[in-house]
């Protein structure tokens, strides 16, 4: 019924799928390193995560700082959309994979939104601008958490000038990650999701499956104001 050749058959597409990070072999290699016989023996999970995000292994000791930063990024309460949305899916008794998928999608969206908000931070961190972006200063309620973060980093012998600028907590954590070498948005998004997804899932899976009435359906309330009632018949054929 159909012809032999269409635009797909005739197009200049590759005929094989490239594998760029992980060898599709046994043992698997991640950016060249044997995962089973090398990385699993000699490196912590956070260091392998570092490799996955940057394609290179960290220097000795650097993972201590990374783990501190990731731990401070980790908490996601149900107030935040990723955990909230995943909790709704759990209340709906969606499949486990769907609960996790909802949380992951929302978390990726949140991560991208946070990174876009922090666009003014990168030039400051690179020393290209002098003034710290005012929009990224934290409120007084964030100050204790930021002090604890600075203190935790000091225990692994790490300091950063950002702590002199009264940043928000996420801003401080992103600055530390940037300083460690995670400079590309995809690297930062990888760490954002890796650190926070466990809490999103923890919050969702702690809820009762199928318990719709435990979820506050009217929070927030939506006030319906309708839409402008127009029809093409009223406007005429030219839309005017």
């Amino acid at each position: 019924m159909s012809g032999e050749h269409g635009p797909v058959e005739d197009g200049p597409w590759a005929d094989k799928l490239p594998a760029r990070a992980v060898t599709p072999t046994d043992p698997p290699r991640l950016f060249g390193y044997d995962v089973h016989e090398d990385l699993a023996h000699h490196y912590r999970f956070s260091e392998v995560l570092w490799l996955a995000a940057t394609r290179e292994l960290p220097a000795d000791g650097a993972a201590d700082v990374l783990e501190c930063a990731l731990t401070y990024l980790l908490p996601v309460s149900v107030a935040e959309a990723p955990a909230n949305a995943a909790s709704v899916a759990q209340a709906c008794q969606s499949s486990l994979a769907s609960v996790a998928s909802v949380g992951a999608i929302a978390l990726a969206q949140q991560g991208q939104w946070v990174l876009e908000r922090h666009a003014p931070l990168w030039p400051w961190l690179r020393g290209e601008v002098e003034a710290f972006p005012e929009a990224l200063r934290g409120g007084p309620d964030e100050a204790p958490a930021v002090r604890r973060f600075a203190s935790a980093l000091a225990r692994v012998s790490y300091t950063h000038r950002i702590f002199e600028c009264s940043p928000g907590l996420h801003t401080a954590a992103l600055a530390v990650l940037f300083d460690l070498g995670f400079r590309e948005p995809e690297q930062l998004l990888t760490l954002w999701m890796s650190s926070r997804l466990p809490c999103v899932l923890a919050e969702a899976f702690a809820g009762g499956r199928g318990r719709l009435y435990e979820y506050p359906m009217d929070l927030p309330h939506f006030e319906y104001v309708g839409g402008e009632r127009r029809s093409t018949a009223e406007e005429g054929s030219d839309g005017r």
Binding site: A81, A85, V88, A89, C92, Q93, S94, S95, A97, S98, S101, V102, I105, A106, A108, Q109, Q110, Q112, W113
Partner: peptide
Amino acid sequence: YGSMFAGLAAGNITMDRS
């Protein structure tokens, strides 16, 4: 967070076996 596609996908996924 600004993406109608992500919202659409997540809402639809919620329907799976729910």
